[in-house]
């Protein structure tokens, strides 16, 4: 018998050992609790942050299940191109750029999953899929926010100072930013690098965690490692390019929204 559609197979041919998966998610949970304890958990998100997250998740649902899956038909159906998934990447990064607090990635993915269940999946396979997506895709975004000290994509860097002392731009560029609201090119470069890192990280969970563990764990079957490796390699270039584009879009939207 299965639980909510999850069979719980742990010995399918080629499946990643469950111990490795448990260790990863246990460590991820520890990180969540450590951050939550340090920063005050959900209380640190203001009402407007929660609304940004809700709207972002709604957009991701509309994109992933309706518009993106429709537009995707115009493109070749190959692992190199994933219009639905890329839309989610862009939207989550826009929300992350607007909120810029550690935890926004995970909360966004959590809300996206609940909305996805309400509109599409009907809570089948839950809570496993929500935990998986929140602690992989969401966590990766939060790690980058933590690494940038809450100045994701260079948004919120004032006077060209990164981490308080490191001079990111010349005095003139800093003045231009203050007086004319002009974003210096070094900020765009920094944003592109951060976007690329997130894009690269987002290419990993689906082939490795989903195809090589959660899919056989849930439904049975076996793991075709040829396809896992092919998918991983095929996802990386597109996800990196879209990560960079998402970072640049985020800067513009954050400006337009006035965040």
């Amino acid at each position: 018998m299965s639980f909510n559609g999850i069979e719980g197979n742990i010995n399918r041919p080629g499946e990643i050992p469950w111990e490795i998966v448990v260790v990863y998610f246990a460590l991820a949970l520890l990180f969540v609790f450590a951050v939550g304890k340090k920063s005050g958990g959900l209380r640190k998100f203001s009402t407007v942050d929660l609304i940004y997250i809700g709207i972002g998740a709604a957009f991701a649902v509309v994109w992933e299940f309706y518009i993106g899956s429709f537009l995707g038909r115009f493109f070749p159906s190959t692992p190199f191109i994933s219009v639905s998934f890329w839309g989610r990447l862009i939207i989550v990064l826009v929300v992350a750029a607007l909120v810029r607090k550690v935890g926004v990635g995970m909360l966004s993915l959590l809300i996206f999953n609940v909305l996805g269940d309400l509109f599409h999946y009907g809570f089948g396979g839950e809570p496993m899929f929500t935990i998986y997506e929140t602690l992989t895709y969401g966590l990766f975004v939060d790690l980058v926010i933590a690494a940038t000290g809450g100045k994701l994509f260079g948004i919120g860097i004032k006077g060209g100072k990164l981490f308080g002392s490191f001079n990111l731009m010349s005095r003139k560029e800093a003045d231009d930013e203050d007086i004319q609201g002009k974003t210096p090119s070094i900020v765009y470069l920094l944003a592109a690098v951060e976007g690329a890192v997130i894009g690269l990280l987002w290419a990993i969970p689906d082939p490795i965690f989903y195809r090589a563990f959660f899919s056989p764990f849930t439904y049975g079957g076996y793991v075709d490692w040829g396809r896992v490796i092919f998918d991983l390699i095929a996802y990386i270039p597109g996800d990196i390019v879209i990560g960079i584009i998402a970072a640049l879009i985020s800067i513009r939207i954050a400006k337009a929204v006035g965040s």
């Binding site: 209380r43 809700g54 709207i55 709604a58 957009f59 809300i111």
Partner: peptide
């Protein structure tokens, strides 16, 4: 479910049809 999460989910539920309408 914590109030903050419920609030975000409901903003999402209300926003989904609005997105189609705005588009």
């Amino acid at each position: 479910i914590p109030q903050a999460m419920t609030f975000s989910v409901l903003v999402g539920v209300r926003t989904v049809p609005r997105i189609f309408s705005l588009l």
